[in-house]
Design a protein around this nucleic acid. Structure first.
Length: 275
DNA sequence: CACGAGACCTGTTCGC
DNA sequence: TGCGAACAGGTCTCGT
C-alpha cells in the first residue's frame, strides 16, 4: 500500500501526533533493536543501534515514498516497499507481528517498523541525499509545470504505465495511483510517452495531482490484511475493479498485465492511440 | 535505452 | 477440507 499518499499520512501523524501518541519531534532515541538484519540497508546492521543511540528526532518529512526522520547528527530513512508499516506503542505493550526494527523513545514509547514481506529498508546516513539522489521530481513541485512535464515525456519512448512507475522519472506514484491517474486523464496505459500533446500532458499532470491529493485527504488506502487507517480504497475508479462498470461510461473495467504489474483501465474511456 | 524475467519474502484468496 | 497456484501497495539486477 505505501505510495506517496500513504507515506505522507504516516509522516503527518508522526510529526503532529494523534490520539494514540504525541508528536515525535523533540523525543530522544534511547536505544534500538534490529530484529531482522536484512531490513538495515546502511550502515552495517551491527553498527546501527550504536550509531542511532542518543540522537534526538528533529524533523519528520517525506520524499517520494521515503519516510525521513532528521536526527541530531544523522538522517533516518525508511522505505516501506510492499508491506512495511510504522507503529508507536507503549514500551510495555507486546510487539506487533513481523516487527523488524524498534527504537526506544524517551517518553516511554517504542517506534516499531513492521514488515511481513521483508522488502522494506532502513538507512541511517549522515546526508539524506545519499539515498535520495536518484529520485525524479516531486509531483507537487511548483517548478514541474505542464510545459516541463511535456518536455520530459517527449524524451521517453516508453509506455506511460511503466514510465510513471519509474521513480527516477517522477517520485511517489505506485501501482494504484498510476492506474487511477491514467483513468482520470483518459489515457491508455500503453500510450507511448513521446506521443502526448501538450494538452494531454497537462491533463495527465493535473490528474496525477488530483488522485494524490484525494489519497492524502482520505489518509491513503488500506487493502487486504495491511490496514493503515485510510479509506481511499473505497473510492478506486479502476484499481482492482476488473469486470465492474466504469463510473464514467458504464463499460466493464479491464485488467491487463504491463511490466509484470496488474493494470486496470476502461477500454472505452482510455483508447489506445493505435487501436 | 527499453523491456522482460527473475529475485527478494510472507500471507491471503481462489480454483479444483 | 486440503492443497497448490495465483496474486499482492516495490525495487533491483541481469540478459537480450
Amino acid at each position: 500500500m505505501p505510495e506517496l499518499p500513504e507515506v505522507e499520512s504516516i509522516a503527518t501523524r508522526l510529526r503532529e501526533g494523534c490520539s494514540d501518541h504525541p508528536p515525535l519531534p523533540g523525543l530522544l532515541i534511547q536505544d534500538a533493536q534490529v530484529l531482522w538484519e536484512g531490513s538495515i540497508a546502511a550502515p552495517q546492521p551491527q553498527a546501527f543501534a550504536e550509531r542511532i543511540r542518543n540522537q534526538q528526532i528533529a524533523q519528520i518529512t517525506r520524499r517520494g515514498k521515503y519516510l525521513i526522520l532528521l536526527l541530531s547528527r544523522d538522517a533516518l530513512l525508511i522505505h516501506l516497499r510492499m508491506s512495511g508499516d510504522i507503529f508507536i506503542l507503549p514500551k510495555a505493550a507486546a510487539l506487533p507481528p513481523h516487527a523488524r526494527v524498534t527504537l526506544t523513545l524517551g517518553n516511554g514509547m517504542v517506534f516499531v517498523f513492521t514488515d511481513p514481506r521483508k522488502f522494506g529498508r532502513v538507512w541511517l546516513v549522515s546526508q539524506a541525499e545519499e539515498v535520495l539522489s536518484g529520485l525524479g521530481p516531486e509531483p507537487f513541485d511548483d517548478s514541474l509545470t505542464p510545459e516541463r512535464f511535456h518536455q520530459h515525456l517527449r524524451q521517453k519512448k516508453r509506455a506511460l504505465k511503466p514510465l510513471l512507475l519509474d521513480q527516477s522519472f517522477l517520485a511517489g506514484l505506485g501501482n494504484i495511483y498510476t492506474d487511477e491517474a491514467l483513468h482520470l486523464a483518459r489515457l491508455h496505459p500503453l500510450t507511448k510517452a513521446n506521443l502526448l500533446t501538450i494538452e494531454e500532458a497537462r491533463r495527465l499532470l493535473d490528474s496525477i495531482r488530483r488522485v494524490l491529493t484525494e489519497g492524502i485527504q482520505r489518509n491513503g488506502a488500506s487493502i487486504d490484511w495491511v490496514y493503515r487507517g485510510g479509506d481511499f480504497q473505497n473510492y478506486f475508479r479502476v484499481y482492482q475493479r476488473a469486470g465492474e462498470v466504469c463510473f464514467v461510461c458504464g463499460a466493464p473495467i479491464q485488467r491487463i498485465v504491463v511490466g509484470q504489474r496488474g493494470t486496470h483501465y476502461c477500454p472505452n474511456c482510455q483508447r489506445h492511440p493505435d487501436g
